[in-house]
Amino acid sequence: MTATTTFWIIIVGAVFTYLTRIGGHLVLSRFDRVHPRVEAGLNAVPAAVLTSLVAPAAMEGGPAEIAALATGAVVSFLGGGMMTIFFSGGAVLIALRHFLS
């Protein structure tokens, strides 16, 4: 692709990306009241989207990757905070990749 085409793809892609970032709010703010089901659906957004980002990566991963995510989940259930989850999962990943390879 030519340099101008690349430039315009970036610009148009950026404009559309911005529209996705503001669009949900623009649509929803037109309504005076939010239906309880819409409300409940929106409350499910963080878990739903973040899970969709993780799950395929976990499926594609080997034993080290799955063990790292499992460690993070267990640490979280034991009451660990974000940073603890982050570093314990990372430590398991690095250790297992080192020993399994």
């Binding site: 973040l50 993070g72 974000m82 982050f86």
Partner: peptide, 22 residues
């Protein structure tokens, strides 16, 4: 070797877990 390629899934998992009381 440093696990850098998988750091983002671990981060996203910790975010998923932080919403577990919903």
């Amino acid at each position: 070797a440093f696990g850098l390629d998988f750091i983002l899934p671990i981060y996203f998992l910790s975010m998923v877990m932080s919403f577990r009381k919903r």
